[in-house]
Amino acid sequence: MSSPKAKIEVIERYCKGCAICAEFCPTNVLEMDAFVVKVARPEACTACMQCELRCPDFAIEVHKL
């Protein structure tokens, strides 16, 4: 297993549960859990930044490692 390329931080207070981030994550890092996104498989993150870019709610920050 490769090491994660980034640390994903979810600002739960801002997340409205639209699921765009989880649905379009190319490596299935994110999952929805009761209408809030959860970082389920951090080790798979490739730091592509798409979740941060597509989050409409300023709720995801991807910190590259």
Binding site: R13, Y14, K16, G17, C18, A19, I20, L53, R54, C55, P56, D57, F58
Partner: peptide, 13 residues
């Protein structure tokens, strides 16, 4: 923040 737009609204993007 958070803004007023609905869940999934593209305006935030």
């Amino acid at each position: 923040l958070p803004h007023i737009w609905c869940p999934g609204c593209g305006h935030g993007i």
